[in-house]
Nucleic acid binder design. Structure first.
Lengths: 197, 197
DNA sequence: ATGCTATGTCCACACTGGTGGACATGTAAA
DNA sequence: TTTACATGTCCACCAGTGTGGACATAGCAT
């Protein structure tokens, strides 16, 4: 979940600004996803990236600047919830949490309590993700419906992962997949139709 | 939203432990709901309660102890999502956010990023709320389905309030009420039936 | 090889957080 | 009235945070 989009830390420790930036970005993504915006500190990120703390301010201006870049990257490829993919989405959200596809949502949830971080994420979501999803939806009100889909999925992940709900974490959670899929379909399919493919 | 369950600040007695406790509790509930567990500071709460900071540690042991009591109170009366009430719930979540019924959820969302706060809330939700909701649901898997309902509603509120989603905040959001209600019904009604009262 | 600039490093500042000790004072019991 | 405890108050501590200044060094152009 970390080696595919960002180059791994290079063993030859010369002076390479691009590699340093990438290393910071990777460590920041992991830290923000795991601890949230407030929970992750720049010192910790720098240590994980094996980089001096000062370089974060230097390369990204501030913690907020770093966060903004991380968020943009996280939402470039993220779980899609189209009518055809709702079954997959429901499964991914309920069963295989913490897999790459839902990391973007996880990042959002863990940082949503910070107002400034929330504004950064809202921008990125609407710009990078929601528009893409809206184009894949049939019917009208696609923008609002895509937002509603993101909202529903966020809630599931929130309850499962952050809150650690026992009912949504035991073995029987598999039986919830059809329910969740039906709920998502209720929003994703066109209003008049009763799609049940 | 504040004067109904907690006694207002008392005029007469100058030293009244019960009144002080209640005042702290009220200020803490407002602060935690507005700013989240991490965002709200004990000094701020004490100032809002017109009380010395030290009394918080004295009466509630710690910030966590205070939070636990606030959470318990918040979930005693909260929005219910039964099949009959899903229309109301959908309306409340999408239109009249920040009303009393959803404050419990709001408190949860704003504090969920803190792991210790999340554990406190999970306990309270499962103990005070989820069980109650499960009893009102028809069919099987009522506990897991009630958890799923809470999850879906949390997501809507999260996206609307914390993230400030524009698509879920403009005038056209009314058109989303039937969608959300259908999604909730997909979980709240019994599996085989197709209840659409 | 030498100088310049980019790159990396160390230290410290100002600030805020939660918590606790020691003290003052009101309130009720003896 | 006097004593004792509950109640309220002030101050300080320590561990965090993000940010910036001043300095060392590597890598490249000349």
């Amino acid at each position: 979940m970390s080696e595919d989009d960002l180059p791994p830390v290079p063993p030859p420790r010369r002076r390479d600004a691009a590699a340093t930036r990438a290393s910071i970005l990777r460590a920041a993504r992991d830290a923000f996803t795991r601890l949230g915006y407030d929970g992750a500190g720049v010192r910790e990120i720098a240590r994980a990236a094996d980089v001096d703390t000062r370089l974060i301010s230097r390369y990204f201006g501030s913690k907020e600047g770093l966060f903004a870049e991380v968020v943009d990257l996280a939402y470039e490829k993220s779980l899609m919830m189209t009518p055809e993919l709702n079954a997959d989405a429901a499964h991914a959200l309920l069963i295989e949490t913490d897999q790459g596809a839902v990391d973007g949502l996880l990042l959002t949830l863990r940082s949503a309590s910070n107002a400034r971080a929330a504004a950064i994420m809202r921008d990125s979501i609407e710009r990078n993700y929601q528009t893409r999803l809206a184009e894949a939806l049939p019917g009208t009100d696609t923008m609002a419906r895509s937002a509603l889909l993101v909202a529903l999925c966020s809630g599931v992940l929130l309850t499962r992962t952050l809150l650690g709900s026992t009912a949504l974490n035991d073995a029987q959670v598999e039986r919830m997949v059809p329910y969740l899929r039906a709920a998502l379909d209720a929003v994703a399919v066109a209003p008049a139709e009763d799609g049940d493919d």
